[in-house]
């Protein structure tokens, strides 16, 4: 067992995962550096979602190791993995799965409330994030009365409200119209850059993958050749230049 290098926030080694009889991941290794936007690209069914779920501790890989901040995730018990998700990780789904009973701001504030934050502070932070993501005006509405892009923004606010260390986004723009998708993605990446949040982004869209600092490609559950770092994108200065004040 090799101790992971210090600047890797997430590191996976030799991941295998099977859903019943279906092989979803075969020998996938990767490392995610702190503060970068890391894209996992591949067509549908290539194992992107399974990989993200393994990395975020929602699934335990059948084989292989996952390290977060130098400590193992794959050996943690289920309650400690839940705790880790709540404290350190954010998750954005393909579909904005909001709790339909709660209003937009309550949805966004939910992770804070679950962590035990006070009602007033949680509300204040949640509404701040909703305003940054241009959905401040519908903070009091229920998800049923929002359109899809508004709901996805609320879901993003919910993922960002705790300023997690790593944000997992599983095809966050797939259900949106292209203009909405571009804007949502831009707000997501700028927010991540300005708050120094590491993002692991699954996508089938090469245009989305182009926004990332590094990309790996998956095909049929295997890495199909690593794409080298996008020229200049990992450069600290250009990163600062494209970060808006979100």
């Amino acid at each position: 067992m090799v101790a992971p290098p210090d600047n890797d926030v997430l590191r996976a080694h030799g991941l295998h995962h099977t859903h019943g009889a279906t092989v979803a991941l075969t020998d996938v290794s990767l490392d995610v550096r702190e503060g970068e936007i890391f894209a996992v690209s591949g067509p549908r069914g290539s194992g992107k979602t399974t990989l993200l779920k393994c990395l975020s501790g929602q699934l335990v890989p059948t084989q292989g190791e996952i390290w977060f901040n130098g400590s193992p995730v794959h050996t943690l018990s289920s309650p400690s993995r839940e705790r880790l998700r709540l404290d350190r990780f954010g998750w954005i789904d393909t579909e904005p799965h909001l709790v339909p009973e709660l209003s937009a701001w309550e949805n966004a504030a939910l992770p804070l409330l679950l962590r035990g934050a006070g009602h007033r502070a949680a509300k204040h932070t949640a509404i701040e994030w909703l305003e940054r993501l241009d959905v401040g005006m519908c903070a009091r509405r229920r998800p049923g009365r929002l359109d899809q892009s508004q709901r996805q923004r609320v879901a993003i606010a919910r993922a960002l409200v705790t300023t997690p260390q790593v944000l997992f986004a599983d095809e966050p723009t797939a259900p949106l119209h292209s203009a909405d998708g571009t804007q949502v993605l831009r707000t997501l990446t700028t927010a991540a850059r300005s708050h120094h949040i590491t993002v692991v982004l699954a996508t089938y869209d090469p245009k989305v993958a182009a926004l990332a600092d590094r990309t790996i490609a998956l095909l049929d559950g295997r890495r199909s050749g690593a794409v080298p770092e996008t020229a200049g994108a990992s450069d600290e200065e250009s990163r600062a230049a494209c970060s808006l004040s979100v």
């Binding site: 839940e82 880790l84 998700r85 404290d87 990780f89 998750w91 709790v99 939910l110 679950l114």
Partner: peptide, 16 residues
């Protein structure tokens, strides 16, 4: 069931 799954994904424990 769907919103329960959402809450679990957020990291809400089964105990809560």
């Amino acid at each position: 069931a769907r919103s329960t799954a959402t809450l679990r994904r957020l990291g809400a424990s089964a105990f809560v």
